[in-house]
Computed example of a mutant assay.
Amino acid sequence: MRGVVMHGPGDVRVEDREDPKIEAPTDAVIRVTAACVCGSDLWPYRGQEPAEGLLMGHEYVGVVEEVGAEVTTLKPGDFVVGSFVISDNTCEICQAGYQSRCVHAEFVHGGIGTQAEKARIPLADGTLVVVPGEPTEEQAKSLLAASDVLGTGWFAAVAAEAGPGKTVAVVGEGAVGLLGVLAARRLGAERVIAMSRHADRQALARKFGATDIVEERGDAGVERIKELTGGLGAHSVIEAVGTQESMNQAIRATRPGGHVGYVGVSHDVSLDGLELFFSGIHLHGGPAPVRRFLPDLVELIMSDQINPGEVFDLTLPLESAAEAYAAMDKRQATKVLLTTGA
């Protein structure tokens, strides 16, 4: 099969890889019908994480081709969507709703890689969700978004306790931040402030439910949010970047007693203990337990209540993966969908 491998910063290649096979009785092999490039894939692409020989991709939808002897909820021919973290969905941590920290957790990125024509998914019963019926092309795009960026944005909104009567600020204008806007509105937030400097992303944020746009960043962005909230700050803030500036901005834009939901993968972020102590805010986040939300998200998508697939603004064939990475790195695309031709 063909699959994407990163050999170093900026060095993305599509190569022949061995077809995956059932290795454990709890495995499934799926034919990947669509994958995509994530903002987190850009960290190794830019040399900010190790990149040699990485099997790329952790967002995926596809059709089950084969299942192990102990798989009970899936069968060949099922259309499925799965989380970017392998989980058994039965351990105490999973049952508490934190499948991304399952006792058997394994990240799909790096060791499995779903920017490929096929993929072996361990613990298939716990990781994959069967989609009822046959999705349309638009629904399939949205299901692909649910595999990570929608589920991550949703978790961020839940962690920030977005809800009725709340003002939510979203730090980050990538796919996760934009879908955090959608999630906050679906959870009933009265007001959603999207922080964005780019007209196309501002337009999509408004389509997803943003009521206000703030273009300023850093301390100026914090002050603007406070101006919009009577000097108090937002009740809930989603942090969807993972830098020192974005985390500081999120914390300082939150009113005392408010909540920050942080899902941006942290890179060189440190917190001032004294500032945090006197802020009086709640912090909650980390790798999103996407599997917790997938059943409900699948239902919302298949009933056409939400269309998160709109975050994909460029579609390319798998063989053009290097072009896809470059487009996202240069901010020429918000999120790129890769088709496999399957």
Rank of each mutant, 00 (worst) to 15 (best):
V4Q: 05
V4T: 15
V5P: 00
M6N: 02
D11I: 13
V14R: 01
E18M: 07
I22T: 09
V29T: 00
V32R: 00
A35F: 00
A35L: 03
C38I: 09
L42W: 04
Y45P: 01
Y45C: 04
Y45N: 06
G47M: 07
E49Y: 09
E49N: 07
A51F: 10
L55A: 08
L55I: 01
M56Y: 08
E59D: 08
Y60S: 12
V61L: 05
G68T: 08
E70A: 15
K75F: 10
D78G: 10
D78V: 13
V85T: 15
D88P: 04
I93P: 05
C102A: 07
H104Y: 07
V108D: 05
H109P: 01
K118M: 10
I121W: 07
L123F: 12
A124P: 01
T127H: 08
V130Q: 03
P135C: 11
T136K: 11
E138N: 08
E138F: 04
A140D: 04
K141H: 12
L144Q: 02
A145L: 03
A145M: 02
G153D: 04
W154L: 04
F155R: 00
F155L: 02
V158S: 05
A159D: 01
A160R: 02
G163W: 02
K166N: 05
K166Q: 11
A169R: 00
G177A: 06
V181E: 00
A183H: 11
E190N: 08
I193E: 03
S196V: 15
R197G: 15
R201F: 11
L204N: 03
A205C: 08
R206E: 15
K207R: 15
K207W: 02
F208K: 01
A210P: 10
A210W: 02
A210L: 10
D212K: 06
R217V: 10
G218R: 12
G218V: 06
V222G: 02
E223R: 15
E223Q: 15
I225R: 02
K226A: 13
L228V: 10
T229K: 15
G233W: 08
A234G: 11
H235E: 13
E239I: 10
T243P: 06
S246M: 04
S246A: 13
M247H: 03
Q249V: 09
Q249H: 07
A250N: 12
G257K: 14
V260Y: 03
V263I: 12
V263M: 09
V265F: 08
S266H: 07
S266Y: 05
D268M: 12
D272Q: 13
D272S: 15
E275T: 14
L276P: 01
F277S: 13
S279A: 15
S279F: 05
S279M: 14
L283W: 12
A288S: 14
R292D: 00
F293P: 00
L297F: 04
L300C: 08
E310D: 14
V311P: 01
F312I: 05
D313Y: 06
D313Q: 08
L316C: 11
P317L: 09
A321K: 02
A322P: 00
A324R: 00
Y325H: 12
A327E: 09
A327V: 09
M328G: 06
D329N: 14
D329W: 04
R331W: 07
T334H: 01
T339G: 03
T340W: 09
G341I: 05
